[in-house]
Amino acid sequence: MTTTESNQTQGRRSGRRDRAAAAPVAGSAGAVEVTNARKVFNGFEAVSDISFTVPAGSFTTLLGASGSGKTTMLRLLAGLERLDGGTIRMDSTVVASARPATHVAPEARRVGFVFQTFALWPQMTVFDQVAYPLKVRRQRERLRERVRDALALVGLAELADRYPSELSGGQQQRVSIARAIVYEPKVLLLDEPLSSLDAELREYMCYELQRLHRRLGLTMVYVTHAQSEALTLSDQVIVMARGKILETGTPRQVYERPKCLETAGFVGGSSVLRGVVAERSGQDGVRVRLDCGGQLWVSPRGVTGDAAVGAAVALAVKPEDLAVAPDGADRNCLEATVEAVAYVGSHCDLSLELGGERFRARTSKSTDANVGDGIRVRVDQEAIRLFPA
Rank of each mutant, 00 (worst) to 15 (best):
90 M>C: 13
246 L>T: 01
256 E>R: 03
261 L>H: 02
223 V>K: 02
86 G>T: 11
72 T>S: 13
143 L>S: 09
144 R>A: 03
37 A>C: 13
243 G>C: 12
24 P>W: 07
202 R>E: 06
354 L>Q: 13
81 E>K: 05
188 L>E: 10
385 R>D: 01
354 L>V: 01
337 T>K: 14
181 I>Q: 11
15 G>D: 13
230 A>Q: 06
292 C>G: 03
82 R>Y: 04
138 R>W: 07
252 R>S: 13
37 A>M: 14
358 R>W: 10
51 S>G: 14
382 E>K: 00
202 R>P: 09
305 G>E: 09
300 P>Q: 13
236 Q>N: 11
129 Q>A: 11
73 M>G: 00
16 R>D: 10
7 N>P: 00
228 S>Y: 03
141 E>R: 15
41 F>V: 06
95 V>K: 02
159 L>F: 14
97 S>F: 04
320 E>D: 13
4 T>C: 00
118 F>Q: 04
111 V>M: 15
166 E>M: 12
258 P>M: 11
380 D>F: 06
77 L>Y: 07
197 L>Q: 03
175 V>L: 10
278 A>V: 07
105 A>N: 10
218 L>M: 07
292 C>R: 06
280 R>A: 06
308 A>F: 09
230 A>F: 09
283 Q>V: 10
382 E>A: 01
62 L>R: 08
40 V>S: 04
186 K>Y: 07
379 V>K: 00
35 T>D: 13
130 V>K: 10
349 D>S: 10
301 R>F: 05
325 A>N: 05
311 A>Y: 12
178 A>V: 05
100 P>S: 11
340 A>T: 08
288 V>T: 02
99 R>L: 11
215 R>S: 13
186 K>C: 05
333 C>R: 09
332 N>R: 05
73 M>D: 00
258 P>D: 09
194 L>V: 08
368 D>M: 14
137 R>Y: 10
245 I>N: 04
328 G>T: 10
49 D>L: 02
64 G>D: 14
231 L>S: 01
232 T>Q: 15
259 K>F: 05
163 Y>R: 14
239 V>F: 02
270 S>V: 04
113 F>H: 04
34 V>S: 11
370 N>H: 15
201 L>M: 15
40 V>N: 04
308 A>V: 10
389 A>I: 07
368 D>F: 12
122 P>Q: 12
383 A>M: 11
314 A>P: 08
12 R>D: 01
28 S>K: 07
382 E>T: 02
203 E>N: 06
155 G>C: 01
179 R>M: 01
17 R>A: 12
194 L>H: 06
296 L>F: 00
93 T>A: 15
259 K>A: 14
109 R>V: 03
271 S>C: 13
286 V>N: 03
163 Y>A: 01
120 L>M: 05
114 V>A: 07
50 I>P: 05
271 S>K: 02
271 S>Q: 14
365 K>R: 14
273 L>C: 04
20 A>P: 07
306 D>Y: 05
145 E>V: 03
187 V>K: 08
264 A>T: 00
97 S>H: 11
299 S>G: 04
261 L>I: 14
23 A>H: 02
